[in-house]
Simulated scan of single mutants.
Amino acid sequence: MFHPLRVSEVERLTDDAVAVTFAVPPELRETFRHTPGQHLAVRRTGAGGEEIRRTYSICSPAAGAGEDPVLRVGIRLVEGGEFSTYALKELAVGHTVEVMAPMGRFLLEPRPGHFAAIVGGSGITPVLSMASTLLVREPAARFCLIRSDRTAASTMFLEEVADLKDRYPDRFQLVTVLSREEQQSGLPSGRLDQERLAGLLPALLPVGEVDGWFLCGPFGLVAGADRALRGLGVDRARIHQEIFHVDDGSAPATVGPATAPAHATLTATLDGRSGTWPVAEGESLLDTVLRSRSDAPYACKGGVCGTCRAFLVAGEVRMDRNYALENEETEAGYVLACQSHPVTADVELDFDR
């Protein structure tokens, strides 16, 4: 369900990025109380009357008990991106945007421990919320942020991260790598690939003692960091990932069985109501549901955001792409409806689980 929220602030972060803050009315404060790491789905109508949906991570700290939630997201311009172009060039204070309640499973609930993040570009957005919330709520917690950006001028939330370093010098460790610009001090420029991370991480912190690793950014960086950590003996359960951008051909395209029945039927439960529909040739199970239920949850339709996650109750499906669900989720029976196609003649999904 989308809610119209008024824009209370638009702050320019870099030449190609802004932070947008939404005013949350009193009656929606509990609806928009977020957990660090969650994102928002936003919706607007394009010039041609088409519906545009996108997801953006919340960068503000999570509100504590009795505090009003602050809803601030980071938006970076994507070439050809309809919503990001609108946000950078037209969106202004006083405008109204339709926003869905916070969602997502890339989370860090504040707790004592040692945590680390490896981020690239706008991947800093959810991690900023994680680090700032953790450090203020848990005096015994520590956080190491390893971030990669093209240049200093393109670095989002530079001041906010510097403030964390100033406020928590003993508990917040910051390592910055620029891929296209040399720094006066710190690490040499270049990409943070698997080989470089495998050598760098043990020199920065006790890798095996970190309670949770959070990887966020482009697919190549996240995949390389995951391989580096696994090679250093980090258990899979301690590695959490969120992909912000996927280059074509950068990952396997098919997950699961490849054959498809000539005719298939989908039964889906959404908000307590069930329906059964024929699946048209070539369409995803999400599109099957949307033909009759416009309230079906989705945002990116690219297998990245996870908004359309559903539990596979019966039958088999093939997922074209999956960059949103962790292994534990797929093993438990969850699929992305936007990427799923029937393998058996009858398939049943439950969006409410």
Rank of each mutant, 00 (worst) to 15 (best):
S179K: 01
V99K: 12
T344C: 09
R309T: 14
R227F: 02
L108M: 05
A131M: 04
P342A: 07
L88V: 07
M100T: 02
E329I: 03
R353S: 02
H341L: 12
H3R: 05
P26R: 12
E67Q: 12
E348T: 15
E90Q: 15
G272I: 10
A117C: 11
L336Q: 11
S132A: 13
E138W: 03
R273Q: 14
A131K: 08
E331Y: 00
V255T: 11
T45R: 15
A198H: 11
G80Y: 07
V10W: 07
R171T: 02
A62W: 02
G186Y: 04
D170E: 15
V161I: 13
L88I: 02
R111E: 10
L28F: 09
A225H: 04
R196D: 01
G233Y: 07
V73T: 06
R236E: 14
M156S: 12
T133F: 03
G49K: 15
E159S: 10
I243K: 02
P257S: 12
P25K: 13
L204D: 12
R291E: 14
V289E: 05
E283H: 01
S189I: 01
S84G: 11
V127A: 05
F244Y: 14
T265L: 09
L128V: 04
L88G: 10
G275N: 09
A153P: 01
A19K: 05
R105K: 12
W277P: 00
F83S: 04
L5Y: 13
G220P: 01
R12F: 06
G120M: 03
A116W: 01
A152E: 10
L107T: 10
D15W: 03
A63S: 11
A237H: 13
A223G: 00
D16A: 13
D163V: 12
G333N: 06
A228Y: 09
L221A: 02
A23C: 03
T259V: 15
S84R: 10
T96P: 00
V289Q: 05
P202A: 00
R76H: 05
S340I: 03
A310C: 12
T307I: 06
V313K: 14
V234D: 09
A140D: 15
R105F: 14
R111G: 02
L77V: 00
E30A: 14
R29E: 14
G37C: 07
L108P: 01
A117S: 14
S122Q: 08
E348N: 03
A17D: 08
V99S: 03
L28C: 03
V207A: 09
P110L: 02
A63N: 10
G81H: 14
T269M: 00
V304Y: 06
R150F: 00
G302A: 11
M103T: 07
D15G: 11
S129R: 07
Y298V: 12
H114Y: 13
R44W: 04
H240C: 12
R196S: 06
R33M: 10
S60E: 02
V175T: 14
T276N: 07
V136Y: 00
R293L: 09
Y86C: 06
R293S: 12
A87Y: 10
T55E: 12
C216H: 08
C305L: 11
S148C: 13
M130G: 00
G94H: 04
R147A: 14
D346F: 05
E9L: 15
A337Y: 02
